[in-house]
Design a protein around this nucleic acid. Structure first.
Length: 464
RNA sequence: UCCCCAGUAGCUCAGUCGGUAGAGCAGGUGGCUGUUAACCACCGGGUCCGUGGUUCGAGUCCGCGCUGGGGAGCCA
């Protein structure tokens, strides 16, 4: 394919001394003296910069003066073997062209490192840093790997709605979607907002999960997956929560809980292996700067079978641990972060899949076990980040599902369409949800979820 | 939402006992014949988050607010 320039990645990988090249990118640094200067240029195609050697007898000093950190330039020249350490090849500049200067007195990014907190405040410029270049490239590779994994296995990519009318997906607070006047909305006879006059003629919100729609498609197409934005209006202020995040939700007809677990484990291992295979340069940078144990942790998920434990067995292990937990453990309680961390990091020392949770602490759609008190749920727990996947076998029996909805006060009339799939040709089926940014935390070793998404949305912050 | 911590130069931070602020880097100028977050010298740079209070005097102590961070809850 003909391109207007050569990506620096390709120059560094395939370039040969003597070749004429044109590169375009952003200046990371310039240094040197009155005879010769060196420009480090990055174009985002890879972590590395290419060195452009500027002979002051070829390029005038005025042109060079404006080429400061952050400026965008084009460089034409001949590729040459580099006599110095640090790079194999460099470009002997014949001509430099300025696309956009960057006033060095005001450009926020310096040659030195910046704190991640500061970079969040300049999210419009942080993709130009080594860290975010690396993270965003890895993110792209991971997104593609997700599609590849499912496509290779015959899963159908399903687009579930972003705007939803069901307020009972049961996964948290929702963002309302409305075109009604915020100050004086129309009221009904009960002095409540009259949503029949709203755009959709009913109250609507941004989706918190595509699962219920995913189930509909799985019961027609067999195996499907979704991969799209998901919204939670929870006032969660942690390094693991976003108000807008991307979720992967496969849903499979004829999969029972063990099949579901097998798929989740294979899926995660595939993604980790892809990262190790295809992102090694970026991951090495991230490991060197943020997480020295990154590769050890990535490889620790690879060779070993995930530990599979029932909730009941996990509770027993926690009781016998001798640990003095802040929250004491007993059968029926929801496991706390400290409990999950103990199981994964100290007890099993590998990823753990917990199954068969008490039905009282899980969602209405999960299939009940014969014991009457647990459901066929599964949570995949990873070191350092906790729950990375949550899933279950779904209740496929109409009567059982309806009973459960009534017990949990789920308005059945709103989910008539969901119930109908159990009336007509129901089938055993299962699925799970993977938080894409949680995966990214694990893959990149970054500590804060706001640093693995380009434009984080969190309480009190929707800038950029 | 709860608990804890922080907010001082463009960035990262120091600032003792309450006495009107300092370093490194960045920036500017000059120097240097191949640098590797180049180096060396000199120079400029402050609404000490906001607000109210205590005090002769507040960056420093107290109240309230805002913002950020860590932990917890909710969850993916």
């Amino acid at each position: 394919m003909k391109t207007p320039h050569t990506r620096i990645h390709d120059v560094l990988k395939h370039g040969r001394p003597g070749q004429e090249v044109t590169v375009k990118g952003w200046v990371r640094s310039r240094r040197g003296n009155k005879q010769v200067q060196f420009i480090a240029l990055n174009d985002g195609s890879c972590l590395q910069t290419i060195q452009i050697v500027v002979d002051l007898q070829t390029i005038d000093a005025e042109t060079l003066k404006a080429i400061t950190t952050g400026a965008c330039i084009r460089a034409d020249g001949m590729l040459a073997a580099s006599p110095a350490k640090g790079q194999n090849v460099e470009i002997q500049a014949r001509e430099l062209k300025m696309y956009g200067s960057a006033d060095p007195a005001n450009y926020p990014l310096q040659k030195k490192g910046h704190s991640l907190e500061f970079l969040r405040e300049i999210a419009h410029l942080r993709p130009r840093t080594n860290t975010f270049g690396a993270v965003l490239r890895v993110r792209s590779v991971m997104a593609y790997a997700i599609h590849r994994f499912f496509q290779q296995r015959g899963f159908v990519y399903l687009h579930t709605p972003i705007i939803t009318g069901s307020d009972c997906e049961g996964a948290g607070e929702m963002f309302r979607v409305t075109t009604l006047d915020a100050k004086t909305p129309p009221l009904n006879e009960h002095a409540a907002v009259d949503f029949s006059q709203d755009f959709f003629g009913r109250e609507t919100a941004l989706t918190v999960s595509g699962q219920l729609e995913g189930e509909l498609a799985a019961l027609a197409l067999g195996q499907i997956y979704t991969f799209g934005p998901t919204f939670r209006a929870e006032n969660s202020n942690t390094a693991r929560h976003l108000a807008e995040f991307w979720m992967v939700e496969p849903e499979m007809a004829f999969y029972e809980l063990p099949d579901n677990m097998d798929l989740a484990e294979e899926f995660l291992k595939y993604l980790v292996q892809t990262a190790l295979d295809d992102c090694s340069v970026d991951l090495e940078f991230l490991s060197a700067h943020y997480d020295a144990d990154l590769f050890e942790r990535l490889r620790s998920t690879d060779g070993v079978a995930f530990e599979r434990l029932s909730y009941g067995d996990a509770v027993e292990l926690l009781k016998k641990s001798g640990k003095n937990f802040e929250f004491p453990v007993s059968w029926g309680c929801d496991l706390q972060a400290e409990h999950e961390r103990y199981l994964v990091e100290e007890c099993c020392k590998r990823p753990v899949i917990l199954t068969d949770y008490p039905r009282a602490i899980k969602a209405f759609y999960m299939k009940g076990n014969d014991d009457g008190r647990t459901v066929r749920a599964m949570d995949v727990l990873f070191p350092r980040i906790g729950e990375i996947i949550g899933g279950s076998e779904r209740e496929s029996d109409h009567a059982a599902l309806l009973q459960r909805m009534r017990e949990m006060h789920i308005p059945e009339q709103d989910l008539w369409w969901y119930l109908e799939t159990r009336r007509f040709g129901s089938a055993p089926h299962s699925g799970f949800g993977l938080g894409f940014e949680r995966l990214m935390l694990f893959i990149t070793g970054m500590a804060n979820i706001r640093d693995v998404i380009p434009f984080p949305r969190t309480p009190k912050n929707a800038s950029f």
